[in-house]
């Protein structure tokens, strides 16, 4: 059952990824992206990483996609069709992507992944929270603080950049 769900999710991801980058209607592309992100959240659920899946849904599907949709609405008309892509450029890039994909898949299939065989640790919200704020081994307080500063800077920067100046 879980296996089936995984395949469905994997297929959804691949299909909608491709549709995202090929769609000529930009708003639709945004919606396809939303489906990809939702399917990814589904995979996290499947793996029992519920908190991560929730973050994925709220931040990505909820935040980023809405942001993108707003950007689209601010910069283009809804029925605006994007011009078709250059055939040669498309073919070249596709070739490059396929070669890269082949190379990596070749490497991945040639490698025998073995787990460390340990029992699953706790990954409930409490464990995540204490891990985020601990400064011992496997503690993430430093990246946590850095991310905090980064978000603050990004917020201020985004406001400053998007602000309309008098002389514009």
């Amino acid at each position: 059952m879980e296996r089936l769900i995984f395949y469905i999710l994997a297929l959804t991801i691949i299909l909608f990824s491709v549709m995202t980058v090929t769609s000529r209607n930009i708003l639709r592309a945004a919606i396809y992206l939303l489906f990809v992100l939702l399917a990814t959240a589904g995979i996290y659920f499947l793996l029992n990483y519920n908190f991560l899946a929730a973050v994925q849904l709220t931040v990505y599907s909820g935040g980023v996609v809405v942001l993108i949709v707003f950007a689209v609405l601010l910069t283009a008309k809804i029925d605006h069709k994007l011009e078709p892509v250059n055939k040669v450029k498309s073919a070249l890039t596709a070739l490059l992507a396929i070669i890269g994909l082949g190379a990596i898949l070749w490497a991945v299939f040639g490698y025998n992944f073995t787990g460390n065989g340990m029992a699953e640790g706790a990954y409930d919200v409490k464990a995540i929270g204490s891990s985020l704020l601990s400064y011992g081994q496997y503690g993430y307080v430093l990246p946590f603080e850095v991310i905090s500063i980064l978000l603050l800077a990004a917020m201020v920067g985004a406001i400053m950049i998007a602000k309309r100046y008098k002389n514009d």
């Binding site: 890039t93 490059l96 070669i99 890269g100 190379a103 990596i104 490497a107 040639g110």
Partner: peptide, 20 residues
């Protein structure tokens, strides 16, 4: 971006070939 990705793929291929 194209040149960069091409370079990365090329490097990857080279390393894989060399590693194998």
């Amino acid at each position: 971006a194209f040149v960069m990705i091409a370079g990365m793929v090329g490097l990857a291929l080279f390393v894989l070939y060399w590693a194998s």
